[in-house]
Design a binder for these strands. Structure first.
Length: 561
RNA sequence: UGCCCGAUGGUGUAACUGGCAACACGUCUGUUUUUGGUACAGAAGAGUCCAGGUUCGAGCCCUGGUCGGGCAACCA
């Protein structure tokens, strides 16, 4: 077991840490952080980031802080803080300290004053349009604005007044004084503070100036003494600024370093928080925890386990290339997990009545079945077998070829845990729809009886429930949310036009085994031959609701497509 | 017409830092099976973006290209 762990090659971030350890770092200096902005729910892309950070913490027995990057009160809310903490806990992540960038507002302010005093920051009083023009473009250097050379005194005075609320939003901002011609656009006098007359979810109305990301992040890392500040690739150009800001305040304490890795993308879904928010706000899905969402809360409601998600992240790996991971890998992870852990149950999603004409009327018998053939300790359960049953509509084909694993007229099939039956006739309504299938059974073929008849090879085994011994249920059948592998891929195409119309089908006439009568939210089962299902959060004993997590691997379905 | 990343089977990640490209998912075959599941056995699929160079030897190093991604919010 440990050998397997040892053998696993280090990802490039772990290699960086190892090299630092060999050079001037000692293990006790290692410290990491996961810094979500509380402006939305965590999704599986975030899972990569926090699994990396918390994984590093575990590997080196180093602390990992949870730090909410809450510098923009117009977007951030307590609701998201709570949801993020809940999701992280569910994923089994244990943080050292719960921190907030807003905890450092005073320190950040004091440092900003220091920068002004050193002539490294100034108050600009132009419109954002003018500043944008002066900033130039990636290929054209910027030019200095008219307020760039204000005196320290004037800057101090203005900045103080900004803080005291004497200005309206947009009137003044504080910028770092770096280089308007720098090849890196981020170094062209980046904004450090803006005036915002908004209440903050933690600091209330204490502040009306709020620091920007670049000014806040590295300094927060420094305050918390984070050794390795890991973020996604789009922040690579920010590293230069991260380092510049650190240069301004750094003394002898440990200096954090930013390193970047690529984000995780999954086929047939989107990871943009902004777009996920749009789906929620425009009611294109039923909330952040809609089981079709790639959010952790959505996956949880869908029936995914934290274990499977961790395994998936681990298998996907960490690198600097853009990754678009096949959702089939995620599905493989949850199947592997659930195969071992869930009890099997029989459920008929689209029932059609099956009458065994030679089975004595009014009689019933108990059949016994293993709960999980993959787990000897899972025990057994009992089911009622009777003359009238329900089978899957789709498991009957009037004229059924021999090689197809279904019931047909004149074609035999086995009822799982029950008897072998032979199709005799169909009953149809006026429109020609099959409303009932009539068959005969071989009384000597009972499963597990050991009789010659029971051992007969039969093409096909069907699941069933007794017509008068079952529980009704609703089942939500989910499919991928988008019709395209990369709905976010084409800037010309609105991702919302790529939503899969059939991503949710609600089946309201399902019949499940009596054993599920008291099933509680979050319980997971394998409905035999159909897939893995999870009891929905809204399920009650009056109205059972199941969500399909994932189908069983099904070659037949693929072939017939 | 700038700067910064990246490029290995369909997808993702490896290759002991220069020694005849491996693992997982997916695909396909077969065996077992009272789930067309699981398990097991096996196969196909890349010669590492291109062109030079260094070297006995290059996916790894060097040079020059090509392609893909990112960078101009008072967002993070």
């Amino acid at each position: 077991m440990e050998n397997v762990e040892e053998k696993k090659p280090l990802n490039f971030i772990e290699q960086i840490v190892e090299e630092d350890l060999k050079a001037d770092y000692s293990t006790d200096k290692l410290k990491f952080r996961f810094p979500p902005e509380p402006n939305g729910y965590l999704h599986i892309g975030h899972a990569k980031a926090f699994c990396l950070n918390f994984g590093l913490g575990e590997r080196y027995n180093a602390p990992v802080n949870l730090r909410f990057d809450d510098t923009n009160p117009s977007k951030e809310e307590q609701e998201y803080v709570d949801a993020i903490k809940h999701d992280l806990s569910w994923m089994g992540m244990k943080w050292e300290e719960e921190c907030y960038s807003s905890d450092y507002f005073q320190q950040l302010y004091d440092w900003a004053v220091l920068l002004i005093e050193k002539g490294k920051a100034y108050v600009d009083s132009q419109s954002s349009e003018d500043m944008a023009t002066q900033k130039g473009t990636p290929t054209k250097p910027g030019v200095n604005g008219p307020f760039r050379d204000r005196t320290v005194e004037e800057n101090l005075d203005l900045f103080t007044k900004m803080k005291q609320g004497e200005f309206k939003e947009g009137e003044h901002i504080l910028r770092a004084k770096i280089d308007m011609t720098h090849a890196n656009m981020l170094m062209r006098d980046p904004i450090m503070y803006r005036v915002m007359h908004k209440s903050h979810h933690r600091t209330g109305d204490d502040w009306c100036i709020y620091p920007m990301y670049d000014w806040t992040h590295g300094e927060s890392d420094y305050i918390e003494q984070i050794s390795h500040s890991l973020c996604s690739l789009e922040f690579k150009p920010h590293r230069e600024l991260y380092d510049w800001f650190l240069d301004q305040v750094h003394d002898e304490k440990l200096r954090p370093k930013q390193r970047e890795f690529s984000r995780l993308n999954l086929t047939y879904t989107i990871m943009s928080k902004r777009k996920l928010m749009q789906l929620v706000e425009e009611n294109l899905v039923n909330g952040w925890d809609d089981p079709r969402m790639p959010t952790l809360s959505g996956l949880r409601r869908r029936g995914y386990t934290a274990n499977a998600i961790r395994k998936f992240i681990d298998t996907a790996g960490v690198s600097k290339r853009d990754q678009m991971i096949d959702v089939a890998l995620l599905e493989s992870c949850i199947r592997t997990d659930l195969n071992k852990s869930t009890n099997r149950i029989m459920a008929v999603l689209d029932p059609i009545k099956l009458v065994i004409t030679n089975y004595p009327e009014g009689e019933t018998e108990i059949v016994v079945a293993d709960n999980n053939p993959e787990d000897e300790n899972a025990g057994q359960r009992e089911m009622v077998f009777s003359r009238e049953l329900y089978i899957e509509r789709n498991d009957f084909l009037e004229e059924c070829p021999r090689k197809v694993f279904k019931l047909g007229i004149g074609k035999e099939v086995r009822l799982k845990h029950g008897y072998i039956i032979n199709g005799e006739e169909v009953v149809k309504d006026a429109d020609g729809n099959v409303v009932e299938v009539r068959c005969t059974y071989d009384p000597k073929s009972k499963s597990g009886s050991g009789s010659e008849e029971s051992k007969r090879k039969v093409k096909g085994t069907l699941h069933w429930v007794s017509a008068s011994h079952n529980v009704s249920a609703h089942v939500n059948v989910y499919d991928r949310l988008f019709t395209e592998e990369n709905p976010d891929g084409d800037k010309e195409v609105d991702f919302k036009t790529l939503i899969n119309e059939d991503s949710l089908s609600v089946l309201s006439n399902c019949k499940v085994e009596l054993a599920l009568k008291e099933a509680k939210p979050q319980e997971r089962y394998q409905f035999q031959r159909l897939g893995y299902f999870c009891v929905d959060d809204d399920s009650t004993s009056e109205q059972l609701i199941f969500n399909r997590t994932v189908t069983l691997k099904d070659f037949w379905a693929k072939k017939t497509k």
